[in-house]
Structure formats: C-alpha cells, structure tokens
Design a protein around this nucleic acid. Structure first.
Length: 343
RNA sequence: GCAGAGGUGGCGGAGCGGUCAAACGCACUUGACUGUAAAUCAAGCGCCUUCGGGCUACACAGGUUCAAAUCCUGUCCUCUGCA
C-alpha cells in the first residue's frame, strides 16, 4: 500500500507505545492480520532515545516491522495523561512541555519542533503534530487555551516538518483537533488547522465523556470541518461499538490501548457474546473446553481451550496474556474487515 | 521424659482486657479499563438482615471480670532444644 492511500480503507492500529505490542513478537503480531502500528514519541525518547533508534536503522528495522506503516504519536496525549493529571512533575507553557521522569528524575522537553525532530529520527511514516490534549469536560477557559496552543503548536510542527523535508523523505503529517466538548471550539480548531494543509486530521482529546459514552457530536463537527480527501483518525477509539459508530461518521483510522490491555486483564472479545465481551478469568470458564470464540481463526482459538487461557491468565503466566492479546487483536482486525465490507 | 515456644477466619500472619467479625498479605468472587507510568486498579469475602441491626466465633472445657482472642486452671494437639 502507498502512503497516500493510508486511511482510504478502515485500519486499526495496535499501540506499540514503547516499541512493542505488549507480550507479542513481530511474528505473533503479524499473525493477527495487523498492518499498521502506533509508537510513542515521548516514551521512545526516554528509552532508548530517538538517536539510538536512528543509529540502529530506524523503528521499522529496530522492531522488524515491515507489514505496514508506523505512526508516531507526538507526546500530546502524555501532556494530558502525565502532566495535566499530575502523575508526573513538569510544566506546560506556550513553548512546549517539560516532563520529569520519576524513574530517572531526568527532564525531557517536548516542543513542536523537537517532537517532529524525534519522530523524523524514529523513522515513522506518519507523524503527528504536538497538541495540548485535555479531558472531555474541562472548563471553557482551559479548552480555549488548549485550542490556541494546539493551533500554534500545529503551525510550528508543520513548519518544522517542511524544514526537515518530511514529504521529500516519504512521510506525511497529521494534526490534532482539540476543543473538549465545546462544539464551536471544535469547529474553530478544525477549520484553522485545515487552512494550514495537513495530510490527515485527528480527533483528539479524551474521547469518552464521564458516562463512558463516545463524544459523537464533537466527532461529527470535526469531520464536517476538515478536508474530505484527507484521512480522519479517531485517536484512542475505542470499544468495538465506538469504532462502528465513529466509522459511520467518516473516521477510518483507529487505535486504542483497550484491546491489548483488556486482553492482559482478562476481558476478551467475541462476536458470539451478547455485549461482545467475555471475562475469561470468571470461575465459569475453569473447565470450559471450547475455544475463546467459536469461528475465530487466531492462534489461541485454533490451539487452546477457554479453560487453558483462563488458567494461564489467573496464575499470571505470560503465555496467557500472549494468547489473549493475539485473540483480541485478531478480533479487532476481523471487526475492521467486516466494517470495510459494509462501508 | 525434661526445658522452651505455640495453637486466631480457606491459607500465612497481626492483635495480648473494652473502640475485634478481628490489621496486613495471599487465595477466592465480581467489576472497571478508550492517542498505555496499567501482567493495573476497585469492591466484596463467618451466618442472617426489613441494611437500623441481630446471631455464632479466635483448639476444647471450666473460671475471674461490668467486659476475655487477650488473665487463671485443666485437657488435647503442634514445633524447637536437651536426654
């Protein structure tokens, strides 16, 4: 597939935040039908460092992943999940964000320019402009700050991308639309970013409200106010139903941590279950000889019983997490295949 | 046999007169996780309940006390040292 066709069909990208989809080897990931994956700028910047990855031949080669494209998230989500939520010390101003890693006590600075620089060094194909990500329900004033900063950081990111000849080097760049749950701010942010001319537009912010519902109205506004011929990426979306709903709106690119994290925690997906999920750790599966999902062609379902996966996960054996992750990712790829046929 | 230590909920292990249905782990039951500081986190976990509370419990049997898992006596077990 050519990079200009990215997002023309629905794609689900697992998160390999620190350079691996947790508990899977590249071959195992490949077996799930996964093509494109997401890595994280901040986490790879801290370990092992973007220069190191560059010296080692780039992230594709480092991870031995050649099935599809790699997208690097800018670190904007960590501005929200680590700094705004005060899990890490640091500060955010109009120039950028400073993260103090509690593990090494070392400071890391992410500016629009440095984020792009790092992403170029990583060697990913699809870059993301740095943004100031916020919760879905921040107050109006905070949302306005977030939008203005995201616009300015978007402008600077794009400028730096061009300066480093991103397109000439075979890369594309997307921008993130912020605005929390204020529809007019979403519209404003989308329109302003669109004027700048990015290759794709991402719906950013925390994608679910306090009731756990996908913020559909906000997502719709962003679709309506960004160029039709550019890909739309719903960052962090989501539960199977959320992906179905977002795809109906026009989003074609998805990633979420839920698939793999749920797998590790024992929540598995199945089209045979009423709400599409089953909790494999539940006592009732302890002597169940059926596969996780009848009809699934993944390694876990072809070779193992629910009882086995139940046991492996309960005793904390890594094999259980691996099998569960393989199954959940295969489920998502099958989900996306179904959606592509319907769309 | 002698000397010492001890017997607490499914297990390990606190408590050593009242605030103890009993800390803290583990196990168990259920739930949550949405651009990953998550192999994490939360709730429940004697029995009954109209959710106010009630009942039975800390080896067993007695006793002291207003009050005992906690103090005393006896019985039965377990472990460690010495013979």
């Amino acid at each position: 597939m050519k990079l200009e066709d990215f997002g023309k069909t629905i794609t689900f990208m697992p998160d390999a935040t620190r350079g691996a989809v947790r508990f899977l080897t590249a071959d195992q990931l490949k077996s799930t039908g996964t093509k494109n994956v997401v890595v994280n700028t901040l986490h790879l910047m801290i370990h092992p460092g973007s220069e190191t990855i560059q010296k080692l031949g780039g992230i594709h080669s480092f991870m031995n992943w050649h099935e599809g494209f790699m997208l690097s998230d800018s670190g904007g989500f960590q501005v929200f999940s680590l700094l705004h939520s005060k899990k890490w010390e640091g500060k955010i101003d109009n120039n950028g964000a400073t993260f103090k890693s509690p593990r090494e006590g070392k400071k890391y600075v992410l500016t629009p320019e440095s984020s792009i620089e790092i992403q170029m060094q990583l060697g990913t194909d699809i870059l993301v402009a740095l943004d100031d990500c916020r919760d879905a329900q921040v107050d109006r004033k905070e949302a306005e700050i977030s939008v203005e900063r995201t616009l300015e950081w978007g402008r600077r990111s794009l400028e730096h991308f061009k300066k480093l000849k991103g397109h000439e080097n075979g890369k594309i760049i997307s921008a993130v639309v912020q605005g929390a749950n204020y529809l007019d701010l979403r519209e404003y942010c989308a329109k302003e970013l669109s004027k700048m001319g990015f290759d794709g537009y991402n719906f950013g912010g925390y994608v679910i409200d306090s009731d756990g519902k996908l913020v559909v109205e906000e997502m719709k506004v962003v679709i309506e106010n960004t160029p039709k011929d550019k890909f739309k990426y719903a960052m962090g979306v989501g539960k199977p139903q959320d992906i179905i709903d977002a795809a109906k709106l026009g989003y074609t690119v998805f990633d979420t941590v839920l698939v793999t994290r749920n797998a590790r925690h024992g929540t598995l997906y199945s089209f045979n279950e009423e709400n599409l999920t089953m909790r494999i750790k539940n006592a009732k599966y302890s002597n169940d000889l059926f596969p996780i999902e009848d009809g699934c062609d993944c390694e876990a379902c072809r070779n193992h019983t629910r009882a086995y996966v139940h046991h492996m996960i309960r005793i904390g054996e890594a094999t259980g997490m691996t099998l569960a992750t393989i199954h959940n990712l295969r489920f998502y790829q099958r989900l996306v295949e179904k959606l592509s046929i319907e769309v």
